[in-house]
Write a protein that binds this DNA or RNA. Structure first.
Lengths: 340, 340
DNA sequence: ATGAAAGCGCTAACAG
DNA sequence: CTGTTAGCGCTTTCAT
């Protein structure tokens, strides 16, 4: 295990001063081409990599951003994280990852750590779309909230347009000729469940319609989806479509409907939410769903952060549009189609 | 947005020299308690956080490790990552995350980036358990491979004991009285599929038994699980248990068996692999599975890295044991039981 | 075109 | 007990 070479080692090997070596390596100043090459060769030979910490003492920048997940890293934070990593990587920035584990103490510890490492900015993300307390007041670096949002309306937050997504779901069901729509979703204390239910109701009202029954709030799981169908069938309500708050619920609904002898989509059109491949593909038939475009959201958040770092912040709450992805649970024989 | 305060600012505000301020803040040297408090108070007032980069110029350490995923971050790398983050966090270390995206160029770029940032060590992980080319030769910092392994047997790799896991699965089926066991698994070109199939076969042979049919290689999906049951039923082979290479396959198998009128577990005992909650919980009945303990694996890898950083490397390949998790797909009416 | 020297923020000797 | 000084690795004037 070799030691790290310093620029002094390189200079010595090339027979020049450190100042010259620095210029040669960074393409500054005016040097003889021959000298430049000699230094470059020495650096290569020693596997020299400039010490970023020392370097940032001058530039004041670290080309690093911190990413804090408030709760545990999971299915929702990953795509956000990847999208952000993508956009930041293009800007030659690295990402520090910090897993908050729903622990405010841990979170504050990480904020301090990131600040001491002089990150150029921070992205805060999490599993729920609920607004949360700002991660700190008057921080010396810009912060962007992605997926979750900050309770301070002056902070920059990028959130999925869940209401818009729910409206798209309803519009699609209407477009394929369904009017007797039921809604099965997650726990009422989840912001997402409430927002989506409200938006669906509202969109139906615009066409003079309403849900065939009040929204069924429960859990986000397949098990709940199956139970909910039981409840729906036990009531005498007729329905020709079900809009579900998650793909897992939809999958459960689908299985239960089939077990009860109802065909999807002929008798009942079915649409989920999240566009989670594991569920949409395994569902019989494949499931139409609403995609949150989390990767795009993460990318967008990162771009706003980069802009803020460069002096052009985008304060406020930014809604990132959802996408409808049509599959056979709403339209027979369709090949998969993406609509904007 | 305030600027970062320097220790000079703190010293000035407290009316002492920077040297004294440094000692006060780090608890070194001998200072009057009053002075120490005065400096601390000044630091607090200015929200001073020592510049980690400048600090590491002296210590030579950054208290940072880099984590590179060879392929994209996903369901398998997350728990590894979290386990590692856990163990490293306890050692006051931060994690740099780099997403390799299966691109060797990208990967090498990240290795350089991490080295220039003077990480104290690196963890390399990925989605497949296959051995991969070392990430670099003769690097100046220790490297541990987690989940995946390095092709160089001298490198430190921590991998799940998949063969042991497959043996546990078979032993459990034998323990609940099944002897006519089928095996449905992923693509044959996947190392995991081959290893698990071979180990299952071998374990049966130790009891003078064999699989009722050659392993059915296909995909890792539910769809393939359902298809495979069709194949199995079309042949005239009798079977009283199915060991599946993944939980998704098992879930598909379960659905198809039920559709064919076979009861799980009465007619056919069913066991999966991965212990992925989404599948094991939604399966009817809940699915017995083999848990790779990826979080423990990540933790273990991180501990080895910490040890290596402190001068005690653990070269070679280390197998991390799998755990059997019993649910109702193999045992009726059981509450969930964990076996070692 | 090149070298010498100052300084980024911090710590650690060494004086006083 | 406290201040001064040197130096970590690098960049950037300013001389030469």
């Amino acid at each position: 295990m070799e030691r790290h070479a310093t620029i002094a080692d390189v200079a010595a090997l090339a027979g020049v001063s450190v100042g010259t070596a620095s210029k040669a390596l960074n393409g500054r100043g005016s040097l003889r081409e021959e000298t430049r090459m000699r230094v470059r060769e020495a650096a290569r030979q020693l596997s020299f990599e400039a010490n970023a910490g020392a370097r940032s003492l001058h530039s004041g920048r670290t080309y690093t951003v911190g990413m804090i997940t408030t709760d545990t890293i999971g299915r929702f934070s990953i795509p956000v994280l990847m999208g952000a990593e993508d956009a930041l990587g293009a800007g030659e920035m690295s990402v520090f990852l910090c897993d908050g584990r729903d622990d405010p103490i841990r979170e504050q510890y990480y904020v301090k750590t990131l600040l001491s490492r002089r990150v150029d900015g921070m992205i805060v993300t999490g599993r729920r779309t609920e607004a949360r307390a700002p991660i700190g007041a008057n921080l010396p670096v810009p912060v962007v909230y992605a997926f979750i949002s900050s309770a301070d309306p002056g902070d920059c937050s990028v959130v999925p347009d869940e209401a818009g997504g729910a409206r798209k779901a309803v519009e699609h069901l209407l477009a394929v000729g369904r009017t007797r729509i039921a809604h099965i979703t997650g726990p009422e204390h989840h912001n997402s469940a409430r927002v989506r239910a409200a938006a669906a109701t509202e969109r139906l009202a615009e066409d003079g319609l309403s849900l065939v029954a009040p929204p069924l709030f429960g859990g986000w799981s397949e098990v709940w989806g199956r139970q909910a169908v039981g409840i729906l069938l036990a009531g005498r309500t007729e329905f020709d479509a079900v809009f579900c708050g998650s793909d897992q619920i939809a999958r459960g609904v689908c299985d239960a409907l089939r077990a009860a002898g109802r065909r999807v989509p002929q008798d009942v059109a079915l649409i989920g939410f999240d566009n989670w491949d594991v569920m949409t593909e395994a569902c019989q038939p494949p499931l139409t769903s609403i995609d949150l475009d989390l990767e795009g959201l993460g990318r967008s958040a990162a771009q706003m952060l980069l802009a803020a770092i460069n002096g052009s912040p985008s304060p406020g709450r930014h809604a990132h549009p959802c996408r409808l992805v049509v599959r056979e649970s709403t339209v027979r024989e369709s090949t998969t189609v993406l609509l904007p």
